[in-house]
Computed example of a mutant assay.
Amino acid sequence: MKTADIIFNKVNRFLEVFLVLIFGLLVLDVLWQVFSRYILNTSFSWTEELARFSLIWLSILGAAYLNGRREHLSMDFLYGKFSDANKKRVSILIEVLVFLFALIVMFIGGANLVYTTLHLEQLSGTLRIPLGYVYAIMPFSGFLIMCFSVYHISKISKNQINVLS
């Protein structure tokens, strides 16, 4: 197994564990919110905000994880009609477009958002944490998607993975 494959597998394993932890935190938070509201007859304002931030992290980091595993949603009706050579070209084009999207929107745009919110010292409403830390998942996930795209392009070029799985 090559070094790139080992790193790829370790990053995916880390993401799996981290996403399960975030999801577990989200479930516990929502359960506490429901319990406190209906059993204790009191509501904690921080539980709703923590649930929102957990869902943001879960969604965006989950998208990066699914991109790395090549399990994201795709429509392949037209793609299935291509020859194998064209499938390879289209798969590489798709990975390049995904890379560019992750670079421009997620990495550069996300880094700009993080910088702006940290520079303006914006805090969340109830948890009072800097919003830049919440938004930091965007450039991080964008970076992961870019790395996964480069990895997939190299594998597609060497015919080591299915062109679109």
Score class of each variant (00 low, 15 high):
S124V: 06
C147G: 15
I56K: 03
S36M: 14
R70Q: 12
I129A: 02
R128G: 01
L50T: 14
L131C: 00
M75V: 15
T116L: 15
Y38T: 09
P130M: 00
A111T: 09
L58F: 15
L164Y: 04
F82G: 09
Y151N: 01
Y135L: 11
G80S: 14
R70C: 01
I92H: 13
Q33T: 02
A51M: 06
R70M: 08
R89M: 11
A102P: 10
I108K: 07
G110N: 10
E48M: 08
F77L: 15
S83R: 10
S54D: 08
A63C: 07
L113Q: 05
I145H: 02
N162R: 08
E121T: 05
S74L: 08
H119G: 07
F107P: 03
I104A: 14
K81N: 13
K158V: 00
L100E: 07
F82W: 08
I145V: 13
W32F: 11
E121M: 07
A63Y: 09
T126P: 00
H72C: 05
I129Y: 09
I145T: 09
I108V: 15
H119S: 15
Y79E: 06
I56Y: 11
F107G: 04
L118Y: 10
R70W: 04
K88S: 04
G109V: 07
Q33V: 00
F35E: 06
F101T: 14
R52Q: 10
V150K: 02
Y133H: 05
S83W: 08
G110E: 06
Y65E: 08
F140V: 14
L50P: 01
K88W: 08
H152C: 00
V96C: 14
L31E: 02
D29S: 12
L113Y: 07
M106G: 08
E48T: 09
K155H: 03
F143E: 00
Y135K: 10
Q122W: 12
I129Q: 04
N86M: 14
L97D: 07
R128Y: 11
S154Q: 06
F35C: 03
I60D: 04
A64H: 05
V163Q: 07
I129R: 01
L164R: 12
H152P: 01
T116N: 14
K155E: 09
I156S: 02
S54L: 13
Y115R: 09
E121Y: 03
E95V: 00
A64D: 04
L28C: 12
I60R: 04
G80C: 03
S74T: 13
H72P: 05
N162Y: 00
A102K: 11
S141F: 02
S54C: 13
I92Q: 13
S59P: 01
L113E: 08
K155G: 00
R128K: 15
K81L: 13
I153V: 12
V163M: 10
M106E: 07
V30S: 03
